[in-house]
């Protein structure tokens, strides 16, 4: 098993993800520069957070149109798991691999803080290690995380259980107060209709060791690895 961690100019959570996979989990993972045009040797792909291309134009817009995205789309079409974290989510949305868009936060400020999330579905390769409805803690760090989709798309995401996680309070209740960015229906992460491409505004790699204050995030990587082992 080998997992690719994609690096664009401006990615900055790439080494954190590599550390969790290699050092904490003992999984074979490799950093892949965006000019690479063949990802066939990998069993899964992670697009880490950061500020690819300085967030020029729109967050994720330039990275979404680099040649490596064709290889990532190929991997996704083969059913292999693809995870986009933060800027990675923005890139996947801009590329059309995920629905919706990540607009500027309701209060237009960079927010870097712990959030409580409710796991809305365990029927994904990234959340299978959780219980449905489980409340977990993973931090966010973004200025463009305000999830927006038109009402038809939003209905479809809900009907097909494509919302993976929502921002909630510590008791698991949805409210405006705990919505850090103005996302519709407190959406923090979604999965595609084929259920193998996920986008997450929270950073699971920052909640993957007890010294960091939470180990909830590592379960997402364990879920992904488990999925790859069984497929």
């Amino acid at each position: 098993m080998k997992i690719a961690i994609v690096q664009f100019g401006g990615s900055n959570c790439d080494l954190d993800v590599l550390h969790v996979l290699k050092d904490v989990m003992g999984i074979d993972a490799e950093l892949v520069w965006y000019k690479e045009n063949n990802l066939d040797r990998f069993d899964g792909v992670i697009i880490p957070g950061g500020f690819s291309y300085g967030d020029y134009l729109r967050a994720g817009a330039i990275a979404a149109r680099t040649p490596i995205m064709d290889s990532i789309k190929k991997i996704a079409n083969e059913g292999k798991p693809v995870m986009g974290i933060c800027n990675g989510f923005q890139i996947l949305a801009e590329s059309g691999l995920l629905d919706g868009a990540l607009a500027t936060n309701r209060y237009p400020k960079f927010r870097c803080e712990w959030t409580h999330l409710r796991v809305e579905t365990t029927n994904t390769p990234f959340t299978s290690k959780f219980k449905k409805g489980e409340i977990i803690q993973i931090p966010i760090a973004h200025m463009e995380g305000n999830f927006y989709a038109d009402s038809i798309t939003l209905d479809k995401l809900n009907e097909n259980e494509q919302v993976a996680v929502r921002y909630v309070d510590k008791n698991g209740h949805l409210s405006n107060d705990v919505n850090p960015n103005g996302s519709q229906e407190n959406i923090a992460g979604i999965i595609n209709a084929e259920r193998n491409v996920i986008g997450l505004m929270p950073h699971p790699e920052r909640a993957s060791e007890s010294i960091l204050g939470s180990e909830d995030g590592i379960k997402m990587f364990h879920s992904m690895v488990d999925y790859i082992s069984h497929n």
Partner: peptide, 9 residues
């Protein structure tokens, strides 16, 4: 359509 605007928003 391809890059400068995001037709969703």
């Amino acid at each position: 359509q391809k890059i400068i605007a995001n037709p969703i928003i």
